[in-house]
Amino acid sequence: MDILIVIEDNNGKVHRMGLESITAAQTMAKDRGFSIAALVMGSNADELATQVSNYDIGEVLKLEHDLLSSYSSDGYAEAVKQVVEKESPKYVFFGHTYQVRDYVPKISAKLMKPFLVDNVLMNSDGDDTVFTKQMFNAKLYSDMIAMDEGPLLISFQSAAYSSDNAASGSASVRDVNINLDSSMIKTQSEDPFQEESGGVDLTSAEIIVSVGRGIGKEENVPMAKDLAKAIGGELASSRPVVDAGWLSSTHQIGSSGQSVSPKMYLALGISGAIQHVVGMKGSKNIVAINKDPEAPIFEIADYGVVGDVLEIVPKLSEALE
């Protein structure tokens, strides 16, 4: 095959971003006349293989091994490395998940092949493909090229390609084998856990008032809380506000927090770093207030105000009451 998609397991289901990489692979395959295969592994490999075989790809490679039954960066990196060496694809596609960030750099080091990360777009350029990624907290874009004949490791940002556009089909399943022994795995993992439960379920909120670093200091947070109350919404925040201890992590929106799609998302002093944006760009209406006219949040906002949050918010609450 030319493109190998590595599918991530999300408790027995194909990770949403795995489906998105199927769409990305199909897009490239169409452009460049490539063939596609998908790799599934781990204790849920059977279920994942069944799900992935319903898409228009050449074949599904199924890898089962005792040492892959739970995730370890050493085990997964070695496994994918060996499959890539055997199958020699031109490209290896991943969703840019937290797990991928953890183990794929190790494959890059093992193979001395570049890992082009977190792409939002790709475009053919003759016999080559240019991958576009965001830089400087999404303020700039950069077209990246690999200076290596491959296999090239490529990851795509959440929602760069839509899983709705993945063409269905019927793929055969082939078992693949690797050599792995326990001495290769240097880490021991405990079970995943959630820190705070019973927090605010922001996913069902109709209106979200969200504060970012631009609120300035902890003493200004109640101002946003008042606005949330006045408009009948829930209070949320970006990561820096949680890091600073101004709000608890149950309020956090973004890649490490909750993902929301309310009717209105009111972003106060939020710059729009990608880690935040992936958690809220599905909102029906985004209203952004920020003093920096260059803030990337305005790229995705439906309504924008370049102005001082501290001046506007109290008057807005007053007007709404």
Partner: peptide, 19 residues
Amino acid sequence: KQSAKKVYVPQSDKQTVMI
């Protein structure tokens, strides 16, 4: 092994109403 070919300011495809 990889390099930036071109760096640019992204063009928004969303129509933002500026107030």
